[in-house]
């Protein structure tokens, strides 16, 4: 069940690479699981570890200052490619609560909103500043869709109104859909053709 997410305060960890696809977020060979849990160990696996399973020291998540950071700032077009929901599951299980980019791919963004991982889309200037300043302490307020930068400057970010509502309420979207069952039944009976 999705937990409500209202405010996130954390330092950032920065992956300054464009077009990070969901295969990199969680490689396909780890998709043989039948559960949602325990994928945090697999997040960015091939970027975090070398062939022998040792940590790659240069990778931002492996640096000591990344410990405990729950805001991930990534290059443009984060989460493109495969529809695997294992990608947000892995990021959440790893400890991330928000991902920030100038653009977040459609299916990945939808999957984030279903699980309580906040997809934050910011303007190019703010994004560039965030990429240049890893470890910046941010406050992300989902309710007001604002991000407070160090020094107190507030910027607005883009978030669909329903997505925002689901995050702050921890809304079960299946329950919401099932509230429309009577209308679904009428649609099925009244439509002009049947599939």
């Amino acid at each position: 069940m999705m937990q409500p997410v209202k405010k996130i305060t954390s330092k950032t960890v920065v992956l300054p690479v464009k077009d990070i696809d969901t295969d990199q977020i969680v490689p396909a060979r780890f998709l043989t699981t039948t559960s949602r849990e325990g994928l945090g160990d697999k997040a960015f696996y091939d970027l975090r570890y070398d062939d022998e399973g040792n940590e790659r020291p240069g990778f931002p998540l492996n640096r000591p200052e990344a410990a405990g950071c729950s805001i991930l700032v990534a290059g443009n077009n984060f989460g493109c490619g495969s529809s695997r929901e294992h990608a947000p599951w892995a990021l959440l299980d790893y400890g991330f609560e928000a991902v920030v980019s100038t653009e977040i791919a459609d299916i990945f963004r939808n999957n984030c909103l279903k699980n309580g991982l906040v997809p934050v889309v910011v303007d190019g200037t703010t994004h560039e500043w965030l990429l240049d300043n890893p470890g910046a302490e941010l406050l992300i307020d989902v309710d007001t869709t604002t991000m407070t930068l160090p020094g107190g400057r507030e910027i607005r970010f883009t978030l669909d109104s329903f997505g925002r509502y689901c995050l702050i309420e921890g809304l079960d979207q299946l329950g919401y859909l099932r509230n429309h069952l009577a209308r679904i039944e009428s649609y099925e009976q009244e439509r002009a053709w049947k599939p």
């Binding site: 529809s83 279903k114 979207q173 299946l174 859909l177 099932r178 429309h180 679904i184």
Partner: peptide, 13 residues
């Protein structure tokens, strides 16, 4: 394409 949560939505509704 859809995610697994949405697969559940379609299966159920």
């Amino acid at each position: 394409g859809i995610g697994t949560t949405e697969v559940g939505h379609v299966l159920a509704t």
